[in-house]
Protein backbone atom coordinates (compact mmCIF):
# COMPACT_ATOMS: atom_id res chain seq x y z
CA UNK A 1 0.00 0.00 0.00
CA UNK A 2 2.84 2.44 0.84
CA UNK A 3 4.53 1.82 -2.50
CA UNK A 4 1.24 2.22 -4.35
CA UNK A 5 0.49 5.52 -2.59
CA UNK A 6 3.96 6.82 -3.46
CA UNK A 7 3.44 5.81 -7.10
CA UNK A 8 0.05 7.51 -7.12
CA UNK A 9 1.47 10.75 -5.81
CA UNK A 10 4.06 10.80 -8.58
CA UNK A 11 1.45 9.93 -11.20
CA UNK A 12 -0.97 12.59 -9.95
CA UNK A 13 1.73 15.26 -10.12
CA UNK A 14 2.64 14.22 -13.65
CA UNK A 15 -0.92 13.74 -14.95
CA UNK A 16 -2.21 16.99 -13.48
CA UNK A 17 0.90 19.09 -14.18
CA UNK A 18 1.32 20.01 -10.52
CA UNK A 19 4.83 21.23 -11.20
CA UNK A 20 5.21 23.17 -7.97
CA UNK A 21 4.50 20.10 -5.81
CA UNK A 22 6.58 17.07 -4.86
CA UNK A 23 5.18 13.72 -3.65
CA UNK A 24 6.20 14.71 -0.12
CA UNK A 25 3.81 17.67 -0.31
CA UNK A 26 0.81 15.36 -0.69
CA UNK A 27 -0.39 13.69 2.50
CA UNK A 28 -1.72 10.13 2.38
CA UNK A 29 -5.05 11.25 3.87
CA UNK A 30 -5.08 14.82 2.57
CA UNK A 31 -8.24 15.80 0.73
CA UNK A 32 -7.53 16.01 -2.99
CA UNK A 33 -10.20 18.66 -3.62
CA UNK A 34 -11.38 21.93 -2.08
CA UNK A 35 -9.33 22.90 0.97
CA UNK A 36 -6.91 20.04 0.51
CA UNK A 37 -4.91 19.85 -2.70
CA UNK A 38 -7.42 22.16 -4.39
CA UNK A 39 -8.08 20.03 -7.47
CA UNK A 40 -11.02 20.98 -9.71
CA UNK A 41 -13.58 19.16 -11.84
CA UNK A 42 -11.24 18.84 -14.84
CA UNK A 43 -8.64 17.31 -12.53
CA UNK A 44 -11.26 14.78 -11.43
CA UNK A 45 -11.68 13.72 -15.05
CA UNK A 46 -7.91 13.42 -15.38
CA UNK A 47 -7.83 11.17 -12.30
CA UNK A 48 -10.38 8.90 -13.98
CA UNK A 49 -8.10 8.80 -17.06
CA UNK A 50 -5.13 8.04 -14.77
CA UNK A 51 -6.89 5.00 -13.29
CA UNK A 52 -7.82 3.80 -16.76
CA UNK A 53 -4.38 4.31 -18.31
CA UNK A 54 -2.16 3.16 -15.48
CA UNK A 55 -4.29 0.52 -13.78
CA UNK A 56 -6.82 -0.47 -16.45
CA UNK A 57 -9.63 0.29 -14.03
CA UNK A 58 -12.86 1.92 -15.13
CA UNK A 59 -15.20 3.49 -12.63
CA UNK A 60 -18.55 1.80 -13.24
CA UNK A 61 -20.60 4.17 -11.11
CA UNK A 62 -19.68 7.88 -11.37
CA UNK A 63 -21.41 8.51 -8.04
CA UNK A 64 -18.58 6.57 -6.38
CA UNK A 65 -16.09 9.21 -7.56
CA UNK A 66 -16.07 11.44 -4.47
CA UNK A 67 -15.34 8.43 -2.21
CA UNK A 68 -12.68 6.97 -4.51
CA UNK A 69 -10.90 10.29 -5.04
CA UNK A 70 -11.17 11.57 -1.48
CA UNK A 71 -7.44 11.06 -0.87
CA UNK A 72 -4.42 9.18 -2.13
CA UNK A 73 -5.18 6.45 0.42
CA UNK A 74 -8.77 5.96 -0.78
CA UNK A 75 -7.51 5.82 -4.37
CA UNK A 76 -4.93 3.18 -3.40
CA UNK A 77 -7.54 1.15 -1.53
CA UNK A 78 -9.85 1.28 -4.56
CA UNK A 79 -7.06 0.18 -6.90
CA UNK A 80 -6.07 -2.67 -4.58
CA UNK A 81 -9.65 -3.86 -4.35
CA UNK A 82 -10.31 -3.65 -8.09
CA UNK A 83 -7.05 -4.53 -9.81
CA UNK A 84 -7.16 -7.82 -11.66
CA UNK A 85 -4.45 -10.19 -10.52
Amino acid sequence: MEKLMQDLKEQIIKQLNLQELTPADIGDDQSLFKDGLGLDSIDALELIVLLQQNYNIRIANPEDGPKIFASVRTMAEFITANQKS
Partner: peptide, 10 residues
Protein backbone atom coordinates in the same frame (compact mmCIF):
# COMPACT_ATOMS: atom_id res chain seq x y z
CA UNK B 1 -7.59 7.54 -30.47
CA UNK B 2 -6.57 6.41 -26.96
CA UNK B 3 -8.24 8.23 -24.07
CA UNK B 4 -9.28 11.79 -24.86
CA UNK B 5 -7.61 14.26 -22.52
CA UNK B 6 -10.08 16.44 -20.55
CA UNK B 7 -7.26 18.81 -19.63
CA UNK B 8 -6.46 19.44 -23.31
CA UNK B 9 -10.10 19.58 -24.36
CA UNK B 10 -10.84 22.59 -22.18
Amino acid sequence: SDIASPALFV
